[in-house]
Design a protein around this nucleic acid. Sequence first.
DNA 1: CATATGATTCCA
DNA 2: GGAATCATATGA
Length: 205
Amino acid sequence: MLSAASSVAPLAHPLPRAFFARDARVVARALLGCVLVHECATGEPRRSRIVETEAYCGPKDLACHARVGLTKRTRTLLGPEAHAYVFLVYGMHDCFNVTCLAEGEGHAVLVRAGEPTGGLEAGARLDGPGRFARAMGISRAHDGHELTRSPLYLLPPAARPARVGVSPRVGVGYAGDWAERRWRFFDADSPCVSRPPRSAIGRPR
DNA sequence: CATATGATTCCA
DNA sequence: GGAATCATATGA
């Protein structure tokens, strides 16, 4: 027995940087079932199984923050892949995103919901991007963190979703035709998804 | 400098 | 249905 190695629990290898070096739509789907781990300063690591994501695809995508070009806010989004892009929305909620593809592309995946799998209070709710980030202890302080290493990283899926739902993204009605793209993905059998599936696109007149 | 606006959540 | 609440982006 390797006593030296056993003093530190061997963790599964985090998802490699190459995992994120793909189009956000591919990564968004691939992230379903993956486990996000946050090794907080105190307590056991917080873990959750990702069950809902959205893809944002660069400057051409009018729903994507990259549409405004390189600013202080979009610096991480337009930076290299495999980094945490965390921003404040509506003046009160932090949203956790994963940068994708490559530096300068502005691709990212928003994590919208998860199932608690460890280190979280019983009954913790991780449905909705604001709640997810808050429950996981993620804030703008994590913006720019490389996600391939401690304290915040992703693990391969223990259980991939049996059925993947697809729908338009939430809250991006201002983006015109881009709002109709079905770039939201979720585990159709998870009770922790932030809102019920929609087969039709809501079109307020 | 002033102001409009959200990748939301909670309450009435 | 509407408020809460503020960094960012944009225009004067």
